[in-house]
Design a protein around this nucleic acid. Structure first.
Length: 547
RNA sequence: GGGCCCGUAGCUCAGUGGCAGAGCAUCUGACUUUUAAUCAGAGGGUCGAUGGUUCGAAUCCAUCCGGGCUCACCA
């Protein structure tokens, strides 16, 4: 049972998943008979591995689905439909055994041997990759294979209907095609009974009663009569989409804006077949840092794995939630912001009223039950403080942290009661920050070469550190740093007449040893980093191995 | 040519009818033995332009200017 207050707030919310869900509510009202279920569909072309757009589509559809479930008691299903009966047109770059796969161009993906050698076919392999990936995120969905649906006869009735509507479908499709293509176009693609190739050939005649089409093999000149049912024929893409909507009663499917015209055509065909086309909307495409569309074939932009190398899945979900109708650049630089925005939303959630909560992305990311934020410290006035990713990146850069231990030592100094056990998500974020630092920050660092004076001072510092006991405190180390610095040109005279050390000495340390303009208190750094490590760092800097 | 998106501070962007905001950057001050995951403060905008609706417009409508993406092969 859905709480009535929650339902009322959902019906009133302006957050986009609720706006979408209300469209579905209108659709339900428009039906004469009470609907048994509402079906959501996402499509997947398994000629390659799942990419970040696939993730976005499933994530966003799931958000609409959950919003709808908050508004209505009608059951819902999400069908992830894989078009694995498609003929392979191009051999993907990122697979092994390409020379084997190239022998099977034009064949159904589910009849091509798996180049990875693990599954029944290439199509099965890619389907398995999709499912593994969707399962990893805990998406609730049902998987559907086009090959299964076609061969099992599940589409037969709709296919015969499409055959009966052949002229109307052609009348819709032909004006959208160029002259040359329209000569050979057919909505039905017969599977060649001998070669297994999915044929793109004109239909010479058809028999609606028998449920067959007649076509000619352009190479042999031989004609064939093929059943449109039972998996002997596949539909060309756009009519296929329409037939599927009709056959399965799909209520909701979203797609990228590059498919706007295709959705229009398929919707018209769907109506001809006798069904209302699904609701949905066209989301904007993701761009790479240069503003170009991200596509599988180009291999530009970010992959899911790359995102998950530097941040958790929640931040990626937030990115997918935000502004689906705006083209957004998707590359490494957006990750820290997404992580920190996610934390800010999570932190705010507990303080918000119901209407605000429903407009908060974390409500949609976590199906209405976001986890509690991991608070680092609670201040006297009750305000809480969480560690931002930006902060961690800064810390990891100046501390030259290469392991979680070093970073945790800094964190614990600030909040002693916090540990990886009490704050597992923070611990994960520490790991992400270190990777981000290693891959993006460290290569950008500019280590200055030591001058001969500086070289002498650094050698003396290393020697002084070597004389300290292993368990020397940060204060003792800091004292040693000062003692070494009390020499020309760093020596200064303090107001009280004592000898001090100028800023230049510390700047030298950071520029030469850490490649930074600023840094942490050096004694603290050396104590946490380890005296031996610090001496090794000095040694490397003097040998010129850092820059 | 059709469609879609964008234009708000130096930069990146929030902000869908009610006093123009955040982060970063810049500047000032305090504090620490002179080093900052410190604290306090400041400067900085004709919200692309014009017209309209409204008591009230960055926000809604129309037109225009500028920038960009996408489709018109295949999926």
């Amino acid at each position: 049972m859905i709480d009535q207050l929650l339902r009322a707030a959902a019906l009133d919310s302006k957050a986009w998943p609720f706006e979408e869900a209300r469209k579905l509510l209108e659709r339900v009202k428009g039906k004469k008979h009470p609907m048994k279920e509402v079906l959501f569909e996402t499509g997947y072309g398994p000629s390659g591995l799942p990419h970040i757009g696939t993730f976005g589509e499933v994530a966003r559809t799931s958000m609409v689905r959950h919003a709808f479930e908050t508004m209505s008691d009608i059951p819902t299903r999400l069908l992830c439909f894989s078009d694995d009966m498609d003929g392979l047109r191009k051999v993907p770059d990122n697979i092994p055994n390409k020379e084997m796969v190239v022998q099977h161009l034009g064949h159904k993906l589910t009849t091509i041997p798996d180049p990875f050698g693990k599954y029944e076919s290439f199509g099965h392999h890619n389907n398995a990759m999709l499912r593994r990936f969707l399962d990893a995120y805990g998406f609730q969905y049902e998987f559907a294979s086009a090959t299964d649906y076609y061969t099992s006869g599940r589409f037969d009735k709709a296919l015969l209907r499409a055959l009966a509507c052949y002229d109307e479908i052609m009348a819709i499709m032909l004006p959208s095609l160029r002259e040359e293509r329209s000569q050979t176009y057919s909505p039905f693609l017969p599977v060649h009974p001998e070669s297994g190739v999915v044929m793109q050939v004109p239909i010479e005649s058809r028999d609606v009663e028998a449920g067959t089409i007649v076509w000619r093999d352009p190479q042999s000149g031989k004609t064939y009569e093929t059943l449109v049912t039972g998996g002997n024929c596949k539909l060309q893409w756009k009519p296929d989409w329409a037939m599927r909507w009709h056959a399965l009663d799909v209520d909701y499917e979203m797609s990228g804006k590059d498919l706007i015209d295709s959705v229009k055509l398929a919707s018209r065909i769907c109506k001809v077949l006798g069904s209302p086309p699904p609701d949905g909307f066209n989301y904007e495409l993701f761009l790479d840092e240069k503003g170009q569309k991200i596509s599988k074939s180009k291999g530009n932009g970010l992959t899911i794995d790359e995102w998950l190398t530097y941040a958790g899945p929640e931040s990626l979900q937030l990115f997918m939630y935000s502004k689906p109708r705006e083209a957004k650049k998707l590359y490494f630089d957006v990750i820290p912001r997404a992580v920190d925005d996610y934390q800010a939303f999570l932190d705010a959630y507990g303080r918000q009223d119901l209407a605000q909560k429903l407009a908060n992305p974390v409500w949609h990311i976590h199906q209405g039950s976001p986890p509690a934020p991991e608070v680092l410290v609670t201040q006297q006035d009750g305000r809480t403080q969480v560690v931002s990713f930006a902060l961690l990146l800064n810390l990891v850069a100046v501390a030259n942290a290469e392991s979680k231990d070093v970073l945790w030592a800094f964190l614990k100094r600030y909040a002693p009661q916090v540990s990886p056990e009490t704050h597992p998500r923070l611990d994960a974020m520490v790991g992400y920050a270190i990777r981000y630092f290693q891959d993006f920050v460290k290569p950008q660092k500019k280590y200055r070469q030591a001058t001969s004076d500086e070289r002498q001072a650094l050698e003396d510092l290393s020697a002084a550190l070597g004389r300290l006991p292993k368990e020397a405190t940060s204060e003792q180390i800091q004292q040693a740093v000062y003692d070494i610095g009390r020499r020309d040109p760093y020596k200064t005279v303090q107001k009280d007449g004592s000898v001090g050390v100028s800023l230049a000495w510390f700047n030298t340390l950071y520029q030469v040893l850490l490649g930074e303009e600023k840094g942490p208190r050096f004694g603290s750094f050396a104590a946490l980093y380890g005296i031996d490590n610090t001496r090794a760092l000095i040694g490397k800097a003097l040998k010129g191995d850092l820059g």
